[in-house]
Amino acid sequence: MKCVRCRARPEVYLRAHNAAFCRPCFVGWFQRQVERTIAAERMCTAGDRILVAVSGGKDSLALWDALVALGHRTTGFYLAQGISGYSQRSRQKVEAFALGRGLELRVHDLADEGLEVPGVAAATRRSPCSACGTLKRHFFDQAALEGRFDVLATGHNLDDEAARLLGNLLRWQTTHLVRQRPVLEPRHAAQVRKVRPLFLLGEYETAVYAFMRGIDSVVEECPNAEGATQLLYKDALNRIEAASPGSKLSFVREFLRTGQAFFAAGAPHEEGPPGSCERCALPAFGRLCAHCRLVIEVERRRGGGTPAASV
C-alpha cells in the first residue's frame, strides 16, 4: 500500500475513501476537505470573523487549527462548564493551544453566574447533557453577538451528524430533520450564521489530523457522556460502517442532497422565525428563551438566591 498522492509509505488508511496517505499528504487532504466544504456550503468568505467554539476535545481544536492554516480570521471561545476536574483539564488544553499558536481566546466561566452544569442539572432535575446544551447555545450566541462575529463555527463531525440523523429518524422528529443542516442562517437580529465545517469528516479522520498536527487535546470523555444515547447511535453506525465502509458518509450526504427535501416540503408545522426573549433579548419562541426559563427555574428551586440575573 502506498500514499495515493506521493506514493510514499502511508501512515493512515481511510476505509470510507479507499485511500491511504502519508502524514504530510493526509494533513493537506484534511485541510482541503475543510476548505471545499466551506466553499461548497457557502459557510463563510475571506475576511469573515469566525468565532470557533472550542471544548478542548480533538474535533474543535482540529477545526480551529485547520481554519487558521487556511488563513481564516478566527477567535476561540471556551465555555467553562464547571464539570468536576474535566472542565479544568479541558480549559488547560484550550489555553495551551491558543497560547502556543498566538491565537485569541475568549473564556466565559459559568461559575461566575452560579450556573455550573452539575448544579443546574441537579436543581432542575434535568440530565446534565440537556442543561449543558441549553447553556452552550445561549452563551455561544451571546459571545458571537457581543464580539460582532460574522460566523460561529463548531467542531461537529460526520459521526456526530450521522448519530443525530439516526436519532431524529428513529423518533420521526420532522422539524429537527428539516433544520439538520451544516449551515444555519440567522433567523433573528441577535444571531449569526452557524456552521459545521467538519460535517463530512469522520471522527477517526479528525483524531488522526489532531494527532499528526501535534494537537494536545483532552483524551478522556466527559463524565456525563457515559451511557449517552448518542454513543449508542454511534456504536450502531460504526458496526454498519465496519461491514460497509462509507455508509456514514452516504447516510448524511444523501440525506442532505435528497432526503431532507421531502421533510421540508411536508413540514406545515415548521416554526416561524423566533421573537426576542423579554429577559435577555436573544431569540425565543414565546416570551422567554429556553436559557432564561432554565435560569428562572434554577432560581426558583434554589429559593431565589444565586444564580445572579446576569443573562
Binding site: Y13, K58, D59
Partner: peptide
C-alpha cells in the same frame, strides 16, 4: 496501519476516538 505487525516487545497505545458530544 491494520496490515502492519506488532511484536512481543512493542509498547502500543490504542486511542479510542469516539466521543459523546461536540463543542
Amino acid at each position: 496501519l491494520d496490515s502492519e505487525t506488532v511484536e512481543d516487545d512493542d509498547e502500543i497505545e490504542i486511542r479510542h476516538v469516539i466521543s459523546g458530544g461536540a463543542a
